[in-house]
């Protein structure tokens, strides 16, 4: 199973991920990160792990990891 991981502290809330997410899985937190932005959050239920957020993010917020156990099962 793939997981989506975020480095929220890097988010500058440019919303390019939000604009391109095909499954409306991205929203923005009400809290601020250290840099003062309402950082991006992912609804893991809606997320299809397509990686488009990773592709469009200029700040390296997103990563998609393949669970090593799941890898072994394949």
């Amino acid at each position: 199973m793939e997981s989506i991981n975020l480095k929220s502290e890097r988010c500058k809330q440019c919303e390019l991920c939000f604009a391109h997410c095909p499954s409306d899985a991205i929203s923005f937190s009400n809290e601020l990160n250290k840099a003062g932005f309402n950082f991006a959050c992912v609804d893991e239920e809606k997320c299809i792990r397509c990686g488009i957020c990773y592709t469009m993010c200029p700040d390296g917020v997103y990563a998609i990891a393949i669970n090593p156990q799941a890898k072994g099962e394949q």
């Binding site: 990773y54 998609i64 990891a65």
Partner: peptide, 8 residues
């Protein structure tokens, strides 16, 4: 299938 994505 999803691909692994990691900032280099």
């Amino acid at each position: 299938m999803a691909k692994e994505r990691k900032v280099p």
